[in-house]
């Protein structure tokens, strides 16, 4: 366990060193958040209570999206690019000789990254937002706690998906294509583009049971008090945990198949 804690701390520190990059990212978050907030306001003005949110909640949803964008890696940018590179260059062979589990190692790194980004790229954009727009804040500390758990589970689900995507590089050698596809699906089905509750009919129903809703829609609903009481919140968290378990399991399976056929580049 000690190893993983060290890896996690290492992941945190690695991102914490890029202070200028973090500030630049917050600026970008603020710009996109502002643009999206205005379009949401225009829409909610003509359709108040669309998707079950009032205007303030809709704007808050936008900024939660910006705050979680890097934390749950909605557009990628976690460990998967690095892992793919290691697979492509064959360096992954070295990782396989480590006495720690490959998936556990990368999960710890990714959790460390997310722990930094929830502070650096999460809190700061929300602070900017609070200066620009009225936001809907949770009223009880229990809600905050539930929200943090939902975010943590969201990170694990996000990691599990990206790990599966990265392993595809064992077969394709160049993983960039799958990464782009995966990011696009994550962006759309997490609620980043529009809240999933606004999606029409079957598309909306499907979107809400797919794993990507764990990345933004579920934490946002918990934050906005739209999960429906304690039982509802626990249900959402269980939903996230179930996807995390299924996807991590799938990752293990794929990892063992992949390592059996290890194709080391350059050999």
């Amino acid at each position: 366990m000690g190893v993983y804690r060290a890896v996690l701390a290492g992941g945190f520190r690695r991102y914490a060193t890029y202070r200028v990059a973090t500030l630049a990212g917050v600026f970008t978050n603020a710009v996109f958040g502002m643009i999206m907030a205005y379009t949401y306001i225009a829409l909610w003005r003509v359709r108040p209570h669309l998707g079950g949110y009032d205007e303030t909640q809709a704007v808050t949803f936008v900024w939660l999206g910006q705050a979680l964008l890097t934390t749950t890696a909605l557009m990628g940018g976690g460990c998967e690019t690095e892992l793919i590179n290691r697979i492509r260059t064959g360096d992954v062979a070295i990782d396989l000789y480590r006495p720690v589990d490959l998936q556990g190692w990368w999960l710890a790194t990714d959790l460390g990254r997310a722990a930094f980004q929830v502070v650096g790229r999460g809190v700061l954009p929300m602070a900017v937002a609070a200066l620009l727009f009225p936001l809907a804040w949770p009223s009880s500390p229990l809600v905050w706690l539930a929200f943090l758990v939902a975010v943590a589970l969201g990170v694990v689900v996000s990691f599990a998906v990206r790990y599966l995507v990265a392993l595809v590089a064992f077969w394709l050698l160049d993983g960039a294509g799958v990464v782009i596809l995966s990011n696009l699906v994550a962006l759309f089905f997490s609620g980043m583009v529009l809240p999933l509750t606004v999606f029409p009919g079957a598309l909306g129903t499907a979107a809400r049971v797919l794993p990507w809703s764990a990345l933004l829609q579920v934490p946002a609903d918990v934050f906005l008090g739209r999960a429906g009481g304690a039982a509802g919140v626990l249900g959402r968290l269980a939903f996230q945990a179930a996807w995390a378990a299924v996807l991590l399991g799938a990752g293990r399976l794929m990892q063992s198949v992949a390592t059996r056929k290890v194709v080391v580049q350059g050999g």
Partner: peptide, 10 residues
């Protein structure tokens, strides 16, 4: 200011 490359995306 290579570190600030993300500002460009804005």
């Amino acid at each position: 200011f290579g570190d600030a490359s993300e500002v460009q995306n804005s």
